[in-house]
Structures are given as structure tokens and as C-alpha cells.
């Protein structure tokens, strides 16, 4: 930071803007009082207890986790082969295919949600879990394709050629060389996808049902009706979960590797 006062100040400002609101939420979660105010009145864990005992939150958390895990897995299972085909394959109209798989980034989610509602829930009589699974998988595809694509673009194609030359079939080359090379990319794509699905509101709002409702939607409902510190406690719990994921990611793969070897 020394010798770069402008850059340093901007960095500090950025951190403040990002972190301070979170600090407000976290500190109000520990209040002993009944109101969602700052500064908190007294210190207690009572709202954490209430949040964990509140059945709609817990069942919604389970639903959200199920949806995030399954849709992330599906997005990766579809996205990684697509990335390989785009980057290494000899297919005509590569950029068109890539554009198609990146398009969910620009199509309004409400439109996607409405289409899925009409076709899958009304048309095919499927449950809202199925509709949400399709919607989230589509939503996550751009991340799977783009992030693994970035790490594949950084990998030297000669490494795969070397494996072929040494006697490995294309399939063997994929499993013993390409996949290990892509592991950090797939891991980060998975992480991003999981978080994106877990946080998603628009699709979940449209496609929810009484049997299947995700956590963000449930929390949104709750805030609209009652304004108490339980919502801050639930947010803090989610935040803690995110931090744990981040720490695990840093310890196992490392952020530099996950985000494309910026610091390499």
C-alpha cells in the first residue's frame, strides 16, 4: 500500500463498504432484546436458538441445500463436457455453442421461471422441485462452462498430447491428465454454482410450492411479516457456513488456483 495512496485508500474503502453492513447484521443477531436495532441491547444467543428451532427455516434450509447440491452436480456434469468440446473439440460454430451455454446470464430469470412454470409445472405436472432443479441447472451452466473453460484455456494442450503419445486413449487421457488438471477449475465452478443456487430468489419465488420452498424465499416472507432479530441470526448462520466453505477451499485448493492462478 505504501507509495500507492490512491489504490490503498480505494482498497480500504472497498473493504469497508463490503464488510460494515455485514458487521451490523452480525452484531444485531447477538442482541438480547426483541427489536432488530443497532446497537444491540445486551448480548445473548437466544435468537440463534429461536432460528434453529423455527421449523420453516430448517426445512427450507434442507430444501435449499438439496437443490444447490443436485443442481451444481448436474450443471458440472453437463458443463464440463461442453467446455471440453468447445475448447478442444473440432466442432463447427464453437462460439455459437458457447454463446448458447452462456445465455442464461443475460436472460431475465423471471422469464426463465415463468417458462418453466408454464411448461414443467402446469404442462408436465411436475413438482416444484423438478422445475427448480431444471431452472437452477440452466442458471448455473454459464458458471460451469466459463470457469472450467478458463482453467482449461490455461492448461497446455501439449500435456494431453503427450499422454496420447505415450499410449493413452482419449478417454484414458481425460481421466488421468485432463481431469486432474481441471480439478481446481471444477472445484471453483462448483463453489460458485453452489453459492449462486443457494442465494437465488427470482426462480425460487416463481416456482416454489407449499411442499418445497427455499431458504432465501422463506426468509423474505418472514421479514415481510415480522421484523425481529431471528432473521439476523439466520443470516449470521448462513454467513458462518459460507466462511467455513471459504476456509476449506483455501486449505484444500487455494484461492489463487481456484480463481485462475492470479497470484501464481
Amino acid at each position: 500500500m505504501r507509495g500507492r495512496p490512491v489504490l490503498g485508500t480505494l482498497a480500504v474503502l472497498g473493504y469497508i463498504i463490503m464488510i460494515v453492513p455485514i458487521l451490523f447484521v452480525v452484531s444485531t443477531a447477538f442482541t438480547a432484546g426483541d427489536a432488530l436495532t443497532f446497537p444491540p441491547q445486551g448480548l445473548s444467543l437466544r435468537w440463534f436458538g429461536e432460528a434453529l428451532a423455527y421449523q420453516p427455516f430448517i426445512s427450507a434450509l434442507v430444501s435449499s441445500l438439496q437443490l444447490a447440491v443436485v443442481s451444481t452436480a448436474l450443471a458440472l456434469l453437463l458443463g464440463v463436457p461442453v467446455t471440453l468440446a468447445i475448447q478442444r473439440g473440432k466442432i463447427p460454430g464453437k462460439s455459437l455453442v458457447e454463446g448458447l451455454f452462456l445465455s442464461p446470464l443475460v436472460v431475465p430469470e423471471l422469464v426463465v421461471g415463468l417458462a418453466l412454470y408454464q411448461q414443467i409445472m402446469i404442462g408436465l405436472h411436475q413438482t416444484s422441485f423438478v422445475a427448480l432443479l431444471v431452472g437452477h441447472t440452466v442458471l448455473l451452466l454459464p458458471y460451469a462452462v466459463r470457469v472450467t473453460g478458463a482453467s482449461l484455456a490455461l492448461a497446455d494442450p501439449a500435456v494431453e498430447e503427450a499422454a496420447r503419445g505415450l499410449g493413452a486413449s482419449p478417454l484414458r487421457t481425460f481421466f488421468s491428465v485432463t481431469l486432474p488438471l481441471l480439478r481446481p477449475g471444477i472445484f471453483s465452478a462448483g463453489l460458485l454454482s453452489f453459492v449462486t443456487s443457494f442465494n437465488n430468489v427470482p426462480l425460487s419465488l416463481l416456482l416454489q410450492s407449499r411442499q418445497f420452498r427455499t431458504l432465501p424465499v422463506t426468509m423474505l416472507d418472514y421479514v415481510q411479516q415480522s421484523y425481529d432479530p431471528m432473521i439476523a441470526a439466520m443470516s449470521t448462520l448462513i454467513l458462518a457456513g459460507t466462511v467455513v466453505i471459504a476456509i476449506v477451499a483455501e486449505k484444500t485448493v487455494g484461492f489463487a488456483k481456484i480463481f485462475g492462478g492470479i497470484n501464481k
Binding site: 497446455d156 501439449a158 498430447e161 503427450a162 488438471l181
Partner: peptide, 12 residues
């Protein structure tokens, strides 16, 4: 046996 300009060793 092929030796590449970029070495192309398996990094893992």
C-alpha cells in the same frame, strides 16, 4: 516418443 517445446510434463 515425443518431446515438446513446452516440456508438457504432467504437473500433478
Amino acid at each position: 516418443g515425443m518431446v515438446f517445446q513446452s516440456y508438457a510434463l504432467f504437473p500433478h
